[in-house]
Design a binder for these strands. Structure first.
Lengths: 214, 214, 214, 214
DNA sequence: TATGAATGAGTATTCATTCAT
DNA sequence: TATGAATGAATACTCATTCAT
């Protein structure tokens, strides 16, 4: 076992170790997501997650410092997927109005079609993550991701002639409207009004775009 | 202590007892509300509520049959206050457009100014997802109250010429927008967009009303 | 309100009060018996008994000093009924062998046909009544009643020529056999042996009587 | 620490772990038995058992899935010992009459000398009444063990010429008589009759055997 | 790394009993 | 006598977390 013939062995080993680590973390997160989907927020105990991942509860602590950290990681990943979904939706869309609509709809549909991501988001919003888990250190990048996912809306609005402040107001309004409709749909209460969510979202976007254009 | 005063002593005693009972129930509910605000959904255990109210855990059961019954009472009262707030806001407002706006703003402000009612409302919404104790028997009247509080919006829209279905869509849109903005405000995330919630709500209502009138 | 015309008013009032008292005690005991039968030993909480009797839990304590005292009273009454049943069965039966059989069968059938009396008896036997409830003061008369109910067996055996000690042994044997069979029947385990209880009891008595006569 | 000793280290460790686990289970069961004896059925709470075993209540759940599982294990073991005791008693006993007597006496003495097993057995019998956790899945093998322990009686009776049905009746009778006497002895009430239990059992068996032979 | 035992605090609810009214 | 509120201890069971191995 000479140094010869072994190109950067320590680094290689470290890399491999890191890769394995990453993989295991991912497996645990996927298990968590499954438990989350199947049994909801309350049923997602550390033990349940560990079991689903094929681990003992104690073993989880080698990969995550706490239960809340798992939620945080889940949420981070969720928002990354959201960003990716939006990016994919507006790739190649040149017209600003179309970009605005595409962004908003991608956001809406991402959550409408994947209720567990929505639940995760609301969990964050309602302060479900305890102080120890949701430090400002974590909170800020999460917020940044959220804003980034919808940023094309402001950009598009600006491209359509809106000043910076109104552009941000448009962004906030779209976000609020989408969130409100998603909540209504997710809880089944939209039935109370005899509507479905997506057409209402489309209507709202029609109005926003019309005003920008008119 | 005239003979007159002694005329119905039993009834008087019963009344007093009933009043005391009512008071104690109220004290417990207020304690529950405080715990709810301070420690959130999960932290609002029966023990915590009892302690906050100055009671033993077991003593609560003389006033409420279960923990969920406390939540239910809290929610019911909250929605009753919401209805009252809306009713007060539109009393004497004759013009349909004004009634629409007044209703929506009363709803918005009720929750914007009283975050604990908002938290309670979201609990209902999440309870809707996983009805853990929130039985349909209870859920339905709560939904009815919620819808009733906003009904004047649909009525006003109809008075302004909207057909029944669009009128309900307007109702749903207003509700969704308000809820979305409230969530943004409640979680402090509206700052991310450099906006404040109420002007955005006003803007939205302007648009709704303009479209109805135009 | 002179003393005249009111013959022994204090005594009369006391009598009436005592009678009312006795009646209420009886009503409570009957309620207890019903609860006992319906919900079994474990389900027979003081509250349940009180409710069944139309009382509040606290009110019971004016009539019985403790929950165990109710069980004790129930058991006392149960044994009184047992004695009465046996007495009725052997009334007018002159032949000693017939008296022996009649006594044993009356005992057996009393419990076979009224499982709750059996459960009550076993509860006593297994020490279900706590020290505070089953004092020697109480235990002794209960034992005495039990022995008394079966005493005609020993008497009959003596009349058939058995010495005192063997007569008591016969008594004990009959009691043990009956109890064993009743337990088997009550728990449904007699099915395991493909038998029914009463014929086995008859067989046993046949043997006992044959030996006494032979 | 020879190489040989290291040959199967994992297996060795697993074995040791399993042995330790078994031991701990046994310690808990013994604690349970002690609590059971001292405080009776109702007093044998999980907490009490855990405390007696030197554990926290929650720790028990690493060794038994529920309280009832502890009872079940206790009962199973008790009946296994009973079977073993009977088997030992009749080993090498060839004569049918002797085998019958040996079986019955072994059964009788097993319980007469170990009152806690008796209490356990009665729990089974009462559990049979109200199957609170004693599921049929469990109940059946327990019944089977019980029957198996006494089966040599029926076999012996058959060998002595009894038809199948009478043989089972003899089995049932012996069981009932033994149980009745054990109950009398266990509760001290046999003194009321001025007898001791075992001679009465012997007498009964004398009669049974005599009748089979006569 | 991973296990599995252990802890200690926690869950909602029930209970017999007491006591002011 | 009776009520109804109150207590304090009890119930089985779950949880996130720690730690020796």
């Amino acid at each position: 076992l000479t140094a010869k013939g072994l190109e950067m062995p320590e680094t290689a080993r470290a890399n491999r170790r890191q890769a394995v680590d990453e993989l295991k973390r991912t497996l645990i997160l996927e298990a968590a997501r499954r438990v989350f989907e199947m049994h909801g927020l309350e049923g997602a105990s550390l033990r349940a997650i560990a079991k689903e991942a094929g681990y003992t509860a104690g073993a989880i602590y080698f990969h995550f410092p706490s239960k809340e950290a798992i939620y945080a990681a889940l949420l981070t990943e969720s928002l990354d997927r959201l960003c990716a979904a939006v990016a994919a939706a507006i790739a190649g869309v040149g017209n600003p109005a179309d970009r605005l609509r595409a962004t908003a709809l991608a956001f809406f549909r991402f959550y409408a079609g994947q209720p567990h991501h929505l639940a995760l988001g609301f969990y964050l919003f309602q302060g479900g993550i305890k102080p120890r888990g949701l430090t400002p250190d974590l909170n800020q990048p999460l917020n940044a991701k959220l804003v980034a996912s919808l940023a094309p809306i402001a950009t598009a609005a600006a491209a359509m002639g809106a000043a910076p402040e109104p552009a941000r107001a448009i962004l906030a309004g779209v976000f609020a409207h989408a969130v409100g409709l998603l909540l209504l749909q997710h809880t089944g209460r939209i039935r109370l009004f005899g509507c479905t969510a997506e057409p209402l979202m489309q209507d709202y976007l029609d109005g926003v775009i019309a005003r920008l254009q008119g």
